[in-house]
């Protein structure tokens, strides 16, 4: 038996919007730790990892570990039917091939339940070791989204370069080139507007902008985004979900042949 009650149901709506374009179908895993997912995009270039910790739910009952295959497109359709202020409860019985989403309005005058069919999904789970990153950039998520969107209109790839001067995002396309430099800005009165760069080594890596723009769909989840870079590793783009966990995206770099 599984029963998870989330008063701030809008978090789940935002999570689905943040991952459904990257991954079509995925297994959600439920354990005492929390509600989680790890899935790769169909071309195995990017990976998304979601964690909603059990402590973040108002009620969390998960009698045994469960893995539930879901179509993210269909799940997003159902969650779109929940109001932004609704309380969302996820329910599943042991051995059932369906999952129920219950939406309660804040005043309890409207209660809806949506039952969705589960599916069998063969998915590969990857072990991601803890790593020391050469550079970690923390910046406003809206600024990062804007940069990826703007550069995406000019080129297909972004070169991210971190030096002690700041972080530079560059692209090149048929019409010309673009460079955007963000310098460290430790805004004390407005921490959500800060740009903080922790650099051990200067690092330069190239990534497909299509994926970065897909990751930026998580912007409504967090005011800040953390970008962790190392020359020999995929980039990690992390959006923390307040009090609950995170959505992390891993993206393999492009290299010059």
């Amino acid at each position: 038996m599984l029963e998870l009650r989330l008063v701030q149901g809008s978090i789940l709506k935002k999570v689905l919007e943040a991952i459904k374009d990257l991954v079509n179908d995925a297994n959600f895993d439920c354990s005492a730790t929390g509600f989680s997912l790890q899935a790769m995009d169909s071309s195995h270039v990017a990976l998304v990892a979601l964690l909603l910790r059990s402590e973040g739910f108002e009620h969390y009952r998960c009698d045994r570990n469960l893995s539930m295959g879901m179509s993210l497109t269909n799940m997003a359709k159902m969650l779109k039917c929940a109001g932004n202020d609704d309380i969302v409860t996820i329910k599943a019985d042991d051995g059932s091939d369906t999952i129920t989403f219950m939406f309660e309005s804040p005043t309890q005058d409207k209660i809806a339940d949506f039952e969705m069919k589960l599916m069998d999904i063969d998915s590969e789970h990857l072990g991601i070791p803890e790593a020391e990153y050469e550079a970690i950039v923390r910046m406003p998520s809206s600024e990062f989204a804007r940069i990826c969107k703007d550069l995406g209109t000019i080129g297909d790839t972004v070169v991210i370069s971190v030096t002690k001067e700041g972080v530079k995002f560059s692209t090149r396309g048929d019409i010309g080139t673009a460079n955007i430099v963000c310098r460290q800005n430790t805004s004390i009165d407005k921490p959500e507007e800060a740009t903080i760069i922790e650099m051990q080594e200067p690092v330069t890596l190239t990534f497909a902008l299509r994926y970065m723009n897909s990751f930026a769909k998580a912007t409504p989840l967090a005011t800040q985004v953390t970008i962790s870079l190392s020359s020999e590793l995929p980039v990690v783009v992390e959006y923390k979900i307040a009090e609950m966990g995170y959505v992390r995206y891993y993206l393999a770099p492009k290299i010059e042949e």
Partner: peptide, 14 residues
């Protein structure tokens, strides 16, 4: 010419 690497080249199946 740039080549897109795969995520599975970095992390192992667990």
């Amino acid at each position: 010419r740039s080549v897109q690497l795969s995520i599975t080249g970095f992390y192992r199946s667990s």
